[in-house]
Design a protein around this nucleic acid. Sequence first.
DNA 1: CTGTTATACGAACGGTCGTGCGAATAGTTT
DNA 2: AAACTATTCGCACGACCGTTCGTATAACAG
Lengths: 211, 211
Amino acid sequence: MAVTDVPPPVTDRRRERGDRTRRAILEAAARLASTEGLEGLSIGRLAEHLEISKSGLYAHFRSKEELQLATIAMAAEMYERDLIKPALQAPPGRDRLLRFADLFLNYVRDGPFPGGCFFIASTMDPARQRDRVRDALAAIQGELLGFFEACIGEARELRQLPNAIDPAQLAFAIDGALIGADLNYLLFGDARFLERGRVEVRRLLSSPGGA
Amino acid sequence: MAVTDVPPPVTDRRRERGDRTRRAILEAAARLASTEGLEGLSIGRLAEHLEISKSGLYAHFRSKEELQLATIAMAAEMYERDLIKPALQAPPGRDRLLRFADLFLNYVRDGPFPGGCFFIASTMDPARQRDRVRDALAAIQGELLGFFEACIGEARELRQLPNAIDPAQLAFAIDGALIGADLNYLLFGDARFLERGRVEVRRLLSSPGGA
DNA sequence: CTGTTATACGAACGGTCGTGCGAATAGTTT
DNA sequence: AAACTATTCGCACGACCGTTCGTATAACAG
């Protein structure tokens, strides 16, 4: 049966162009969605911003929900590339977590998303009422909390944190400090809140206070 | 000049009906805006939900922005009545702050706003790009942080907290715990995150760990 | 009663939304 | 060169958006 299962001899270089524009669309969509929201992001404005036609853009997605899901996936890819991977260069445990927090807080101010953290903005978006959007966002937030907990577990093994702490609770506290920094920074336009987030994460990870 | 400056002898009871419907509109608007967002809240749907005509509703406001601002004011009034005033019944200092946190977290789950905390949702809303909306939200968030700091100051005078702590930093941390509880609860639909918020606030206010 | 005024309504406006379709274009393969 | 196909476009649709306006209603004043 699988006589011609050899993949169509790599010939299809015809799809390259489409993939490139698709990526360009999604990067602009992610940027725009951080300020306009996933639901408020309109296909017309996005097309205008990219200087292509509305239908030419729309041809890449079967519906607005698909565009939203693809935008979330693109944003996740960007966070992976810009924050997670660099943080993994730091030694495990507390150092890695501190590195991530610093990278994140700088990303809020100088990163590609003018509306602060893309995922915090999306979590509060009306689009979260679509089940598939909610599931996608929850999966990513779950991975983030898992990453925090993993670092905390490593820190505990390295005796950087007392054994008594609850990793899930501490991960929640760190997450809250980062979210609070993002929100207050956006609302007041005052970078001191980013510094408060930095300080708070360090305080949470300095063992004496402990669990 | 002011011969007839005596205010029209209180006669105007004619405005009573309008004020009542205006309040009804704004309460429904605040509820709806917590899920649809301040910008996504449409006049048509709001009118349909209230079973009045679109123009009848619109007559109460000169523009959508005015509706948004009035909705924010109504929500602030509700928070004042349901959270701040009751919290002030508790003794000053740590007790008052803990009482507020508990009230807030219950409000997220059982309060009149199906989309969690109205103000957290609104802060991430595209409507924040309107200057007057942003200013109104920032003023309220500023008052909240101020309330936290005041309680922390009282707690310090009552020797419930060490003198070394930074009230602004601690207020920021408490705010972050509450925001994180709201966000994660909405995203995962898991009430354990509300409990994590409760625990975190208590941990932050138990002096030993301190600043 | 008549007159006044606050309140609500119906209908319509110009625009933009998401979405579909058939034709034109461009790039690759024979 | 011709044939094929991925990509893009122009155009149109029905629905809803915020907003305006003229009109009806209903409560009060005199």
